[in-house]
Design a protein around this nucleic acid. Structure first.
Length: 307
DNA sequence: ATCCTATCCTGTAGGC
DNA sequence: TGCCTACAGGATAGGA
């Protein structure tokens, strides 16, 4: 569920609900002891008021009164659930429950327990081990061709894998990495350190574009708690390659391919994302000359067929 | 330094 | 129906 656009959606939602509310009680579940939910939560939070909500990449930062910040990462399956009037029945995998003085509650639910919570001294946030290495947040400091070219200098990893490295850009995950590269027309297997400025320029442009569009639609996938009815994010329909192996590329009709890079799925269009520049592996051939121009016009038929 | 692999968990979808 | 396997939006420790 949670890449930057999803986390930003959560942030915006919570921002309308929790600032100004004071914690009366915090509980963690027994199972939480095995997860990354700190045992001191019940001691650290009561009496504190939520002040504002920040985000850096995929991290949510809840600033609290008294100079503390609740740092949260949703991992793969984490969710924040806000209830003005909490239901009696607790769903599975709720590891932390914060009860406010007015009766509202905020729950942290995380089936797979890859997420984490931590309470840190706000003044020391910059030294937090999980935050200190993060690269720029693309909404705050939009990447440019120059910044990307510089950051990727010398890197031999595939550009898709490079985009997932939170130390380079904070917030891009597996869905949007594929989507960005498809829009940019860059082969995901190409080595980051060998991309030229024009490729990075397109990647910079499309990173901003994809993230903005996804945020505007409240993200991809997730069965959200934003509305009482739990509407899913609306970007799923706009995905051009992710999870579409074998289906026609929305641009040219060529079947989308799925490959595995760093144990994670990558989706791309072998025609739209053929390479300008050096081949990903020492063994060339990916960029073999191909009459992409003329041939790709065949797309029109398929496009209308799908609509 | 950089890169790669395995690992932490549970839920779900698909094949038989 | 049940059983089995493969896979899932993430990060990171440790070895090469």
């Amino acid at each position: 569920m949670p890449e930057l656009p999803e986390v930003e959606t959560v942030r915006r939602m919570l921002e309308t609900a929790i600032p100004g509310r004071r914690v009366a009680r915090a509980r963690i579940s027994g199972k939480a002891l095995h997860s990354r939910v700190p045992r001191e939560l019940p001691r650290a939070l009561p009496g504190r008021t939520f002040e504002r909500l920040r985000r850096h990449g995929k991290f949510l930062l809840f600033d609290l009164s008294g100079g503390a910040t609740l740092v949260s990462h949703l991992g793969m399956s984490g969710r924040w659930l806000f209830h003005a009037e909490p239901p009696a029945r607790l769903p599975a995998h709720v590891h932390a429950r914060l009860a406010f003085e007015d009766g509202a509650e905020l729950w942290f639910q995380d089936a797979r327990r890859f997420g984490m919570l931590r309470v840190v001294d706000t003044a020391q946030l910059g030294r937090d081990p999980s935050l200190v290495l993060l690269g720029p947040d693309p909404l705050v400091e939009p990447p440019t061709a120059e910044s990307l070219l510089r950051a990727a200098r010398g890197s031999r990893v595939a550009v898709k894998t490079w985009l997932l490295d939170q130390r380079k850009i904070a917030g891009i995950g597996n869905i949007y990495a594929s989507e960005i590269l498809h829009r940019s027309g860059v082969d995901p297997r190409r080595r980051a350190g060998f991309l030229r400025a024009d490729a990075w320029r397109r990647i910079a442009r499309d990173t901003a574009q994809v993230l903005d569009e996804a945020i505007a639609r409240a993200g991809t996938t997730f069965s959200s708690y934003r509305t009482a009815s739990g509407q899913p994010g609306g970007f799923g329909n706009l995905l051009r390659v992710y999870d579409r192996a074998g289906q026609p590329c929305r641009t040219c009709g060529t079947p989308v391919r799925r490959i595995v890079q760093g144990q994670r799925s990558t989706y791309f269009c072998p025609r739209c994302q053929h390479g300008a520049g050096p081949a990903p592996r020492p063994g060339r051939r990916a960029a073999a000359a191909r009459p992409a121009r003329a041939a790709s016009r065949r797309s029109r038929k398929q496009r209308s067929a799908r609509a």
